[in-house]
Nucleic acid binder design. Sequence first.
DNA 1: CTGTAGGGTTAGGGTTAC
DNA 2: TGTAACCCTAACCCTACA
Lengths: 140, 140
Amino acid sequence: MGAPKQKWTAEEEAALKAGVLKHGTGKWRTILMDPEFSAVLRLRSNVDLKDKWRNINVTAIWGSRKKAKIALKRRPLTPKREENAKALSTVVQTNEEVVDAKPLAFASGTPGNGGPKDLLARLYTSDICTSCFAELGCIF
Amino acid sequence: MGAPKQKWTAEEEAALKAGVLKHGTGKWRTILMDPEFSAVLRLRSNVDLKDKWRNINVTAIWGSRKKAKIALKRRPLTPKREENAKALSTVVQTNEEVVDAKPLAFASGTPGNGGPKDLLARLYTSDICTSCFAELGCIF
DNA sequence: CTGTAGGGTTAGGGTTAC
DNA sequence: TGTAACCCTAACCCTACA
């Protein structure tokens, strides 16, 4: 049809990550509207952002969505939402560009440690975990 | 962002339909307050009811809200409300539970036929059609 | 303030194209 | 075959208005 399939460039992916850092997950339209990212992401829709973010996260953890599904089928424990689940993100934040930053890495340790606060505060809340947790069926 | 998404159960949907039969559309808060349904729908808000009812109706006619929009764009005739348009509902009313009842089916035949009156009377008024007609931009 | 209507957005399952 | 990219839509959000 019209779109021959648009592979995500490294620049676009970086902009997406930076956008999530700034606005949080689930704010795809907001990220898209942000003049800081709208230039780079101008060819993408809010749904594209959401889908890409899903791919990035799921890939980082399970290798792929399919593997995630398989992994989930193997343990249909589906516990109630545990509040001691936290997400950590090893972010390499240069001046104004998120360079890499593996999206998520898990740690069940004490949540109230003294890390970099302001910028990452959002990440420590359930905010950034939402999409991931939802995708994973909240097994953490 | 606590709720990972609450899919409607068949029981909830039945309760909603029964609620609309009893109180009419647009009376979401009333339906919620009705002790006959409050138990089943206790996790839902009045807005949830409204949205679900919209989905049920639009889906029954167009397949989805998007398709409805597309269909409407194709014929932007938008006539004024025609009064010979009526809605029929094949309701299977057991003693106190609406079992299925496809939400709407259209017939442009003579409106003043002798059908089941009391319970369905409300359905023949613009009442139950309101959400549907509104959604459709009153093309009927 | 409370409730509804209606447009807009997101979450998540599914599909396609590579 | 596997998976990134894309589609579909139920569920949810936001705002205007009464």
